[in-house]
Design a protein around this nucleic acid. Sequence first.
DNA 1: CGACAAAGTCACCGAGCGGTGATATTTGTG
DNA 2: CACAAATATCACCGCTCGGTGACTTTGTCG
Lengths: 227, 227
Amino acid sequence: MRKTRKVEEREPRSRDRLATERSIVDAAKLVLAEDGFQSFGVNAIARRAACDKQLIYRYFGGLEGLADAIGADLALKLADDLTPLSDAERPTSYGALSKILILGLLDLLRRDPIMQQIIAWELAAPSPLVSRLVAERGKRLGAWMHALRGSLTPPAGIDAPATNALLIASTQQLVLSASSSGALAGMPIKTEADWQRARSALIALIDGVYGAKPPTRKQKPRPSSMG
Amino acid sequence: MRKTRKVEEREPRSRDRLATERSIVDAAKLVLAEDGFQSFGVNAIARRAACDKQLIYRYFGGLEGLADAIGADLALKLADDLTPLSDAERPTSYGALSKILILGLLDLLRRDPIMQQIIAWELAAPSPLVSRLVAERGKRLGAWMHALRGSLTPPAGIDAPATNALLIASTQQLVLSASSSGALAGMPIKTEADWQRARSALIALIDGVYGAKPPTRKQKPRPSSMG
DNA sequence: CGACAAAGTCACCGAGCGGTGATATTTGTG
DNA sequence: CACAAATATCACCGCTCGGTGACTTTGTCG
């Protein structure tokens, strides 16, 4: 006496392994982006992919393998986003280079909830699982930066790697804080105006440390407004 | 017939409510500092406090109430750490002030794994629970900064709140990255030398944006090509 | 057709979680 | 002493989690 199991005419999975694998990877990315790394587990992912969790084990060997697949997937997408600059927009000073790097990273990160989650994950709960996700990214970003740099050298007496690391740090924290609480150390980061303000401050930081470019007095920075 | 339950002569709790409450709060802080916010739950805390989780509900009304108690506890400790400066060490320029603030925050945060966890928690999983922990801290820090500032004003044309927010951001990310992975954007942060390096870069950032103070010469700060 | 493998599904396990009602034990007070 | 209040512990519930073995369905090939 077995159950008929046909009371509901659920659309069956297409019995196409590649398609199923892709849907699992997509579901995993969705879970990560929308529910956070705390929900990143076989149950939640299988639920989102509308398939049995057993398939995750069968096709990817578990969460670790799935993380590898996602990592590869993300690396592909990153390679697209990191288009090299045309010769016309090539920076002519180290400060300008740093500005392009940092602001580019800021925009990239703002648009990428998955990366935000991965960074938060790494900060909050370092684990072999998240390391698998990070591995490729570092190489890609490093190569991109290196290619952009060309033969530009930082001003003498400046520890460029450390300085850039700090600039990247503030950028990351800025984006993460904006996503999580919409504010950073009392400064609201919600509207586009807020972002412009943060951006200006970031530029001032870079200019200050790498040597300012006189901006020809276009407009005065307005420090006031909300707060 | 009741169970004897005396096979093991476990030291009974002292039946001193205040002492028990304190031990629970201490256990909770320990869990947070050592196991991270992911483990911050009634079971783990009760286990660490060697008491029944029921007491957490009875004495604090659940995790929320316990979080409030911890928040108050942390605020007390913070008040101790944030001693006002003597007149001799009062900064005479806004840049010097910012330096004291940021570097002070850096040292404070480095020594405080609980604060690190709370910040990471807020970034990774904003929840009413963690907000309770953060509430007091902001007020205390803000008051301290305000008191330090006195009548100093930032250089014209600089959005000081935004700039300070970015500096705080890089500081936080620096400490969190060091704790979690021991590196930040390729720069290792493990040895004391690593920290000194990061510190110097941070100082250069501050000097750059607020106008460097030449150590010997007395000269109007010029934000241009300062190395 | 029948055999077989691949694809997908189901049912279950042990563990840990947050939460609660009932019970046991000590302590202070008359 | 008796007794009630305070203190602490136990036993259990429902749930979700990661993980696994056994099953059914489907397509392919001889």
